[in-house]
Amino acid sequence: MKKIIELNVNGEKHEVAVAPNQTLLEVLREDLHLTGTKESCDLGSCGSCTVLMDGNAVLACMILAVDVKGKEILTIEGLAQNNELHPLQKSFHEKGAVQCGYCTSGMIMTAKAFLDKQPNPTKNEVKEAISGNLCRCTGYAKIVEAILSVKQA
């Protein structure tokens, strides 16, 4: 049985009919057509589906959509404000931190939640912060660099 719930995503309220067995990831991608959040392992081990829930980085594949009502969700699509790239988006692009891009959304969302809490991290802290986001292309080097450069900015 589907149930109508109100989802607050990227500052916008949506009424969505969701079945209990739908994850937040499915609803974001399939019902709200926010396909920037990616599904890679779907079992909580890779970080590709990271979104922010009330400011905390969480995995959309591990959360039931029905369980999200009343919470604020921020996805990669909601990061840029007034067409202005978020500093992380800018630095990921400029520093070459993007290759295939499949992990990028999750990586940036994780980094955003982290920098919000810890605006001046060390390199090791950055490495630890993104260690729940797997990337097979970059060897993480440029990702770490991109996040560090935002801190300095």
Binding site: H93, V98, G101
Partner: peptide
């Protein structure tokens, strides 16, 4: 020089 598709990938716009 940054890659040509870097920007849209950081915005989650690139279609896979």
């Amino acid at each position: 020089i940054p890659r040509i598709d870097g920007m849209i990938k950081t915005k989650g716009e690139a279609l896979y």
